[in-house]
C-alpha cells in the first residue's frame, strides 16, 4: 500500500508517497536524498543511521517512515550552520574523531543527544553511551575525545 508521508526534516516540511513498509532511513536517503544518514547493518546494531526524531536520537533503520509522520526530524545535514560546522562537528575534526566517515553522522547525532541530557559527561559515560554506535576505523579513542571536547565547547557556547 502506498501512503503519503509528511514530516519536518531539518526545519523544512517534506512529503513523499511511499510504500507503507518504507523505513525512515530509506525515506530520508531515497525520497529526500539526504544520504548523510547511512545504513551499516540490518540488525539495529551499528548506529550509522542515527537521526533525531522529536529531539531524541533514534536508529532510523528501526522506525517506519509512517511512524515519523508529522514529526520533527533532524539529520546530519541539518547540524551545521551553513558552512560553519557545529561545535560538535568541529570537535570531531579537531580531534581526528573520524577516518572513513561512514559511522560519523550517526556518531555526531548520537553525541548531540548525549550532551543534551548530560552536558558534562565523563569519559566512561561517553563510552557507555556509544554502546549503540559501531566504528571500525578509529578505535573509539578519538571519538570519545571528540565528544568530550564537543561537549565542553557546547557548554562554553
Amino acid at each position: 500500500m502506498t501512503v503519503n508521508v509528511s514530516m519536518n526534516v531539518n526545519g523544512k516540511t517534506v512529503s513523499a508517497d511511499v510504500e507503507d513498509r518504507t523505513l525512515l532511513v530509506t525515506y530520508l536517503r531515497e525520497n529526500q536524498r539526504l544520504t548523510g544518514t547511512h545504513v551499516g547493518c540490518d540488525t539495529s546494531q551499528c548506529g550509522a543511521c542515527v537521526v533525531h526524531v522529536n529531539g531524541k536520537s533514534i536508529k532510523s533503520c528501526t522506525m517506519l517512515a509512517v511512524q515519523a509522520a508529522g514529526a520533527e526530524v533532524s539529520t546530519i545535514e541539518g547540524v551545521a550552520n551553513g558552512d560553519e560546522l557545529h561545535p560538535m562537528q568541529e570537535a570531531f575534526r579537531d580531534n581526528h574523531g573520524l577516518q572513513c566517515g561512514f559511522c560519523t553522522p550517526g556518531m555526531v547525532m548520537s553525541a548531540l543527544d548525549l550532551v543534551k541530557t548530560n552536558p558534562d559527561p565523563s569519559e566512561t559515560e561517553v563510552r557507555e553511551w556509544l554502546e549503540g554506535n559501531l566504528c571500525r576505523c578509529t578505535g573509539y579513542h578519538n571519538i570519545v575525545k571528540s565528544i568530550l571536547a564537543g561537549a565542553k565547547a557546547m557548554r562554553g557556547a
Binding site: 539529520t75 545535514e77 560546522l85 570531531f92 573520524l98 566517515g101 555526531v108
Partner: peptide, 11 residues
Amino acid sequence: DNRFLQGIGNY
C-alpha cells in the same frame, strides 16, 4: 572531514 561531518560525502 568537512564533507564527512556534514553528511555530504559520496559513497
